[in-house]
Simulated assay, not measured.
Amino acid sequence: RMFNFSKIQLGLLIFLLFPAIISCLWWAAGSHFLMDPNSICRKTKRLSGKQAELCQTEPEIVNEMVKGMKQGMRECQYQFRNRRWNCTNHSKLFGKILQQDIREKAFLYAITAASVVYAVTHSCSMGELLQCGCANMLAPAPALLSMKPGSEGAAWEWGGCGDDVDFGYEKSKQFMDAKQKEGKSDIGSLIDLHNFEAGRLMIKDFLRTECKCHGLSGSCAIQTCWRKMPHLREVGSRLLERFDGAFKVTGGNDGKTLLPVGWNIKPPGTHDLLYSAKSPDFCSLNRRTGSAGTRGRWCSGHSQDTGSCDLLCCGRGHMEGRVRAEENCQCRFRWCCMVQCKKCIIEKEINICL
């Protein structure tokens, strides 16, 4: 039930950057975007100073950002696969979502910012970008020292190829925050900036330490350790938790602060997601709000989670049926080194929302 990207839908990956440059990028987008990052810069006339500078001087980094946005879209679709809003990439509906300061937009902006950090940093570690490489770990941080695996008392040192997450973080911040910082102080821009940062911090603040042992007979007398980013799936899951507990906010009188709505509510933290408008219920097709509805969606007739037929079908009921599908079966390992499988036709029970 994952989504396939058509040429027009690939433009939506760029569409996540900023509503201000959507119209320029949308119709110009095609599959060539991922191959030619310069087309983003050529066909977009309203890039801000920092964005234009990055396009002119480091187009290969823009290419990695586009890859990151594609990863972010897929992660969004995975995390919301069993929910009424399933991060559909239908062009007109998707655009309406980004015009509202709702929870769904908050998640989209956060996972996009996180995915851009992830993609750029990963390319640095793989040696695919000339501007960066492995992290320079001259002095271990106390927090990381307490996280190191291995036996107590073993000598260890920083080494290997740690992820230079600071480089990816700065590039994401430089490009994605630029439009919102251009003299704007409205509540929408403040919320966008916060959610961008929340996504980036889900990478930067959750680095893990990996170590490799060295010594005779596997004694692990010495360990070499380095910092690695969390997996993007882990980041998506953390952001989904923040989505469920997102803070509704309003603007302060000074025009520069955001205040939580309600009495005795603690201020939101840096990892929290923010929104200011109520989301639609996403039960029925509504082009004005960006809701695709849930009619025709597969649901679970037995579970009680968000993918259950009761919740996903919004009380309309569901239709039961069976489908035939081809799957690998009777798989055997053949020396050396392959797995051979037969194709079997199986029947599956399905439930479809009415």
Rank of each mutant, 00 (worst) to 15 (best):
F3V: 09
G11R: 06
L12K: 06
L13T: 08
F18G: 06
A20K: 02
I21R: 03
S23G: 08
C24N: 08
A28Y: 01
A29M: 05
S31V: 00
N38I: 04
S39M: 13
K43T: 02
K43I: 00
T44C: 14
R46P: 11
L47I: 00
G49E: 03
Q51W: 11
Q56E: 11
Q56A: 09
E60K: 11
M65S: 13
V66T: 06
K67S: 02
K67M: 05
K67G: 01
G68E: 00
Q71D: 10
R74F: 10
E75V: 05
Q77F: 01
Y78N: 01
Q79A: 09
N86A: 07
C87K: 02
N89W: 13
L93Q: 03
F94A: 10
I97E: 13
L98Q: 06
L98A: 04
Q100L: 05
E104R: 07
F107D: 02
A110K: 06
A113N: 15
V116I: 02
V117I: 07
Y118Q: 08
A119S: 15
T121H: 13
S125N: 08
G127Q: 11
E128F: 01
Q131E: 15
N136L: 10
A139S: 15
A143D: 08
A143F: 04
S146P: 00
P149L: 01
G150S: 09
A155Q: 15
E157N: 14
G159R: 02
E170P: 11
S172M: 02
K173V: 00
D177P: 14
G183W: 03
G183E: 02
K184D: 00
I187H: 15
G188K: 11
L190W: 03
L190K: 15
D192W: 01
D192S: 15
L193P: 12
L193T: 07
N195H: 04
F196T: 07
G199D: 00
L201Y: 07
L201C: 04
L201I: 01
K204H: 13
D205G: 10
F206R: 01
R208P: 07
S217N: 14
A221W: 11
A221D: 12
Q223E: 13
W226I: 03
R227G: 12
K228V: 07
H231C: 06
R233C: 06
E234T: 08
V235N: 00
S237C: 05
L239R: 03
L240W: 06
E241A: 14
F243C: 11
F247W: 01
T250P: 03
K256R: 12
P260K: 11
G262C: 08
G262F: 10
K266V: 09
P267Q: 05
P268Q: 01
L273V: 05
L274C: 09
K278M: 04
S279L: 07
D281H: 13
C283K: 06
R288I: 05
A292Y: 09
H302R: 03
S303M: 12
Q304P: 07
D310H: 00
C313W: 00
H318L: 02
R324G: 14
A325Q: 01
R332D: 06
F333V: 08
R334E: 14
W335Q: 11
C336R: 14
C336F: 12
Q340I: 10
K342Y: 04
I345Q: 13
E347S: 14
E347N: 14
K348R: 12
